[in-house]
Amino acid sequence: MRPDDTTMSALMGKAQSGDAEAYRAVLDYSRTWLAGFYRGRIDPAGADDLVQETLMSVHAKRATYDPSRPFLPWLAAIARYRWVDRLRRNYRRAESELDETLSEGDHEAEVIARISIDRMLARLSEGQAEAIRLVKIEGLTIAEASGRTGQSESLVKVNIHRGLKKLAANVESE
């Protein structure tokens, strides 16, 4: 059974004190959660790298977690930061079919929706979100994205630049 957020907070608190068993539980849970979080938001081959990078960040920044606060929003902020960082590094690969569904379907679905990557993308204009999705997530060239969207090539570039800037400025926004 998947632990609730209160349990995760307690486990992370123990992990900060050096409890290896609690830490393994935190990382196992985080790995599963991150795989669902990134699914469909980056190409599948890149998702594995991103999960691993994010777990490294969780490890390096574990002292910044406050056990009196919920665990998931902390993990999600780090995950979003890593995702935007990946997009900004001009990450491009051939993509497979995108899975538009979010894997979570339990009582935490509402919380998950608030902290999801889609919530960030919804803050962008339609043109910005489309340009980022096609070029940075699906791996199309600027010219291909231009042909697909009807935007000029320079507009696609401007939309990507402005969109990424806006994403980076809204990592902690609901």
Binding site: L27, D48, Q52
Partner: peptide
């Protein structure tokens, strides 16, 4: 692919747990 990912992250988790030391918040 899922099996490969799971194996890769499992060994990563092993090394992160091995590297665990208490931290001051």
């Amino acid at each position: 692919n899922r099996v490969m990912i799971s194996t890769a992250t499992s060994s990563q988790i092993d090394s992160l747990v091995a590297d665990l030391a208490p931290v001051r918040r």
